[in-house]
């Protein structure tokens, strides 16, 4: 089998107002079939995609924030969230929904998928990738 490549999906848009966030999620789900080393990055307004307590019923839209919780099963387990982007929007990591994955190597222990990083760490993360897809 060919060597795994490092894929980073960069999310910079708030959900619902445009199609970017939902499209990114669809591409991540489709891309998961290729079993690469996948990371997601949330910066700028992209951090709003992970807000806890999203309720789209009155807006008559699909609440795709719940789909992020399924991604652990698809081996998508690294959600890098930029601290500066949160702070600029008056948010902290506690405002985000908990997202976990089950670690097969440790008897299916639940582990957090969200990894808060600084802007400098985000820049370094980008520099490590083979492929970067932006939304």
């Amino acid at each position: 089998m060919a060597q795994k490549k490092k894929f980073l999906y960069v999310n910079r848009k708030a959900p619902y107002g445009t199609i970017y966030a939902l499209e990114a999620l669809e591409v991540v789900l489709i891309g998961a079939a290729f079993e690469q080393d996948v990371s997601l990055a949330f910066l700028d307004d992209g951090v709003f995609q992970l807000m806890a307590g999203q309720d789209t019923a009155a807006a008559s839209m699909k609440n795709f924030s719940r789909t992020f919780k399924a991604l652990g099963d698809y081996d998508v387990r690294k959600f890098y969230v930029e601290r500066e982007s949160l702070a600029e929007r008056g948010l902290t990591v506690e405002d985000l929904m908990p997202i976990t994955y089950e670690d097969e190597a440790e008897d299916y222990a639940e582990k957090p998928s969200i990894i808060p990083v600084s802007r400098a760490e985000m820049a370094a993360l980008i520099a490590q990738q083979d492929v970067v897809l932006s939304f």
């Binding site: 910079r12 848009k13 970017y20 980008i126 492929v131 970067v132 932006s134 939304f135």
Partner: peptide, 8 residues
């Protein structure tokens, strides 16, 4: 360059 990043 090793990779291209689009800022949209």
């Amino acid at each position: 360059h090793a990779r291209t990043v689009a800022w949209l």
